[in-house]
Design a protein around this nucleic acid. Structure first.
Lengths: 128, 128
DNA sequence: CTAACATTTCCATTATTCTAGAACTATGGA
DNA sequence: TCCATAGTTCTAGAATAATGGAAATGTTAG
């Protein structure tokens, strides 16, 4: 993920209808849901939704496949986690968000500092 | 962080100048940098930058304080990590991104699945 | 082939956002 | 006080994005 891709991804997520669509698709998991179902669920005209879905597809956030008369949309999870990785690596400071790869699980492990307005009473193992 | 806040945050990050400003501020850490320095560094007219900084401040991404004649802007790291938390908790599936609190360190620990295009039967080796 | 269906494309309208010149406000120094 | 410096606000035009009606496309069933 480079800065230009991230920009387009943020843009896709910065509109209420699109963010709602994305969250709805997340609920439907990798199986996804047909455009009409999303349109019904959100009460948005099919053509308007189609515009937003196309926007999100272009951004990389969702993908689609035809299944009979329907077109099934689904969230592109690897892309979304890629965006999170970009935010941690390239838009934050290691003091607040660090990332490392866990060789055993093959996962990226992110630690977010719990730097809240009201610091905990114990808080002894704090670095920094 | 609720959906409305996240929307405004994504909007703030979805514009090239603003994302560049944020990344620049991240480099300056908690100390931050005066508006003029950002303006010079990015080659953007002061008034245009001011418009974007105000946008970002309203979103919660940055904060400012006056210091003599300068106004020092800095990244709001807790807010930004809050946005990452929101993305993991409320915009993703546990299969791809999980989050838990580490009682010892007081940090949130996120695990991002290394979900590659070709899901092998077993994947012990790391691939980049 | 025709009809019904699911979705997209085309188009015009409306709304929002970006940009930068000019004017304005706030601060510190002589 | 007057001046220079540092930023912000006002303003309006240009550019971009969102919306939904109507028409077009692609798919399946009869």
């Amino acid at each position: 993920m480079d800065i230009q891709e991230a920009l387009i991804a943020f843009d896709a997520l910065s509109q209420e209808t699109r963010l709602k669509v994305f969250r709805l698709l997340v609920e439907h998991g990798t199986a996804g849901a047909p455009a009409g179902k999303l349109s019904d669920a959100l009460g948005i005209p099919a053509n308007t939704l189609s515009f937003h879905l196309s926007h999100m597809t272009h951004a990389g956030l969702v993908q689609s496949k035809r299944e009979g008369r329907s077109i099934i949309y689904s969230a592109n999870f690897p892309f979304f986690t890629g965006l999170i990785r970009f935010m941690v690596k390239d838009c934050c400071s290691v003091e607040f968000a660090s990332i490392r790869d866990d060789k055993n699980t093959g996962c990226s492990v992110i630690e977010l500092a719990d730097c809240c307005p009201a610091p905990q009473t114990k808080q002894k193992g704090k670095k920094s």
